[in-house]
């Protein structure tokens, strides 16, 4: 059974899944993931996933939007197309605040969405978990824990017994 991508255990609800995730992690498994129909608080931490760096990316994009937005207005109003209106200064910065603000938000929000999709590797039309016929429940009422065969501790018989011992209703083979 070396051609397995991994094993998928099905649980009744999010609490059973949380408990199982915690135990699998304690047992030393590292290549773990879970699939749930709604975000479950603390599940990612229980599985040992690192915290996402997305906020940093969004912050950087927001700064880029602010600086770029202000520079755009400065360049247009003072360098490329200077217009003297009633002797007012060319770099009339208070008038540039609204557009700078809007561009900050635009850049940061776009980065939040694009960054989330990119870090998640989406769009991704194919993934081995979709090979499990019962997996369509993951978007409805199914709670799944997966262990990848790439995990150093993985052994198809041992891992299957371990998962069943955690109270899984069913353990499915995941073909690559």
């Amino acid at each position: 059974m070396a051609d397995l991508w991994g094993l998928m255990a099905e649980f009744a609800d999010e609490q059973a899944l949380m408990a199982a995730a915690d135990q699998a992690r304690r047992a030393g498994y590292r290549r773990l993931d879970a699939h749930t129909p709604f975000p479950v608080e603390g599940l990612s931490e229980a599985l040992g996933h690192p915290r996402t760096q997305l906020p940093l990316l969004v912050f950087a994009a927001g700064v880029a939007g602010a600086v770029g937005g202000f520079f755009l207005q400065y360049h247009a109003s003072a360098v490329a197309y200077p217009l003297n209106i009633g002797g007012k200064p060319l770099v009339s910065w208070p008038a540039f605040v609204p557009v700078t603000f809007e561009l900050t938000i635009l850049f940061a929000a776009s980065a939040a969405v694009a960054g989330m999709l990119a870090l998640n590797g989406l769009p991704q039309p194919y993934h081995p978990v979709f090979n499990v016929p019962e997996f369509d429940k993951a978007s409805r009422d199914g709670f799944f824990l997966t262990v990848e065969s790439a995990d150093p501790l993985f052994n198809s018989t041992e891992t299957r017994r371990f998962l069943a011992g955690l109270g899984a209703a069913k353990v499915h083979d995941v073909l690559p």
Binding site: A21, D33, P37, P39, M116, N120, L122, P123, A138, S139
Partner: peptide, 16 residues
């Protein structure tokens, strides 16, 4: 787009 409700994905999703 291939959403599969992965815990890893949900974490980034909620952050976003």
């Amino acid at each position: 787009m291939g959403w599969r409700g992965s815990a890893r994905h949900w974490q980034r999703y909620e952050s976003a």
